[in-house]
Design a protein around this nucleic acid. Structure first.
Lengths: 252, 252
DNA sequence: GTACGTGTTCCGCCTTGCGGAACACTCCAC
DNA sequence: GTGGAGTGTTCCGCAAGGCGGAACACGTAC
């Protein structure tokens, strides 16, 4: 697709291996080879290289398992510091959790393509939703994604929604038109909703966090098991999320 | 030094470029070339490759500047989740901050080599200390480092202190012997101290966070401007840090 | 105008990564 | 036991592909 074919193949595949380790760690050579579709010997070379670079360690025992080191952590945190989201959001997230008793997620949008869950405060209910920190969130299927899209100029929305839109369930927006229609609703009421559109059994509402120039830098989301989620609850949670987003935005 | 010379040169240099971007971002080609001692054309190729891999974006203006994307964030966060430190430490860190009114740092030790500041709660005083999240901390010169060393078996200490020990100031431990002597004190009283040994004008105390098997997974540190730091205050803060570390350890 | 400072492109030499295949090993079923 | 299906690791010859000096295009400072 994209222009520059001048990229180094070695590096690209090694980075893909690194990302796979991040997802599956602790993990062995064969599993990575399967997940990436790369020959085992090549994967092995990548792993050894990453260890020499200090990004991975091979954890002992009979079967060699690979895990990330603090180096990956260090580089990653520098990416988030630039935004300063976490610090700005922390106290408001706690208030929101106390008001709703549901799990609160903080999502970062890097202005380009990636949507990442950077922080989470857990619900105190016995039944609660769960995602791993660091997971990448789909733009079209999550309420955070659509809350952010609703604040972006049309050209950028167009670009972000190009390519295939993966369907996770019955309620995932089927195509670009469905998303665009939803965005009108989101713009009107200030928050986006998500009724099991991404992960099964999970409903959620999200509101965009905007910086000084009105540009979205991320989103805050409240997610609940579907048993505690219906139209009325969505409105209640949505209004709280919008208010929380406003307070957080004031700190950016 | 180390064994495997089978590592891929390309990848190693590209990762070094990536780390440099993390430190200096936003940053241009020439600055990176200077910092890493790599020819400009090679650095440029690395950057293009990293962009294609989705780890960097080139922010367009007159001068091309490079910054990390959320992909780096995502991978980095997965590294920290494995430890689960942040979640375990959050509430206790807040208590400790309220007790001391100084800046609290959470440091992660990945069991190998890297010591990274993963979280921070700021002091409410007008004069306060400051470090960037994600920065790598020296083992011998920081109180967190020495608090952790004090809990490690001799062989591992030996390995970690091999190589040159950088001197940051008059009070930085000069050599391995000086560190080893300090470790005895640390073991005796439970916390480590740091009187301007790493960063100028900053005093600090630190206590190790240990997992179920007693292995250190990180440290918690209280750092204060030297005006509010002397022997008495160090003891007071040290005891509070030790107690906080115990409470956090109970959650691991 | 001269002198540096950026970032970007080109191209021929020859290093270096490629990956199938063979290896050593552990576990499990029969 | 013996075979088979898993692991992770090593080898090696071929040629793909990365290297980096040099030249380029631009902007700013004096």
């Amino acid at each position: 697709m994209s222009a520059s074919g001048h990229a180094m193949r070695t590096v690209i595949t090694t980075l893909r291996v690194l990302e796979t380790v991040a997802e599956l760690q602790p993990v062995g050579v064969s599993a990575i080879a399967r997940a990436t579709g790369t020959p085992k010997s090549s994967v092995h070379r990548c792993l050894v290289t990453l260890r020499e670079a200090g990004w991975l360690t091979s954890s002992r025992s009979d079967r060699t398992q690979w895990v990330l080191t603090g180096r990956a952590l260090s580089v990653g945190i520098h990416a988030s510091v630039e935004l300063g989201l976490r610090e700005a959001a922390l106290s408001t997230m706690q208030e929101l959790r106390d008001e709703t008793h549901e799990t609160i997620h903080l999502i970062s949008y890097d202005g380009d393509r990636d949507l990442v869950v950077v922080d989470r405060l857990d619900s105190d209910e016995p039944v609660r939703t769960w995602v791993r920190l660091g997971v990448r969130v789909p733009m079209h299927a999550s309420c955070s994604g659509r809350a952010i899209l609703a604040r972006l100029p049309d050209a950028e929305v167009e670009r972000l929604l190009s390519g295939e839109l993966e369907r996770f369930s019955e309620t995932t927006p089927a195509d670009r038109d469905a998303v665009m229609e939803d965005l009108r609703t989101v713009r009107a009421r200030g928050y986006a909703t998500n009724d099991r559109a991404w992960r099964p059994g999970v409903g959620a509402v999200g509101a965009a966090l905007t910086g000084p120039q009105g540009r979205p830098l991320g989103a805050i989301a409240v997610s609940a098991p579907i048993q505690r989620y219906d139209a009325d609850r969505a409105r209640e949670l949505g209004l709280l999320a919008v208010d929380a987003a406003r307070r957080i935005g004031a700190n950016l």
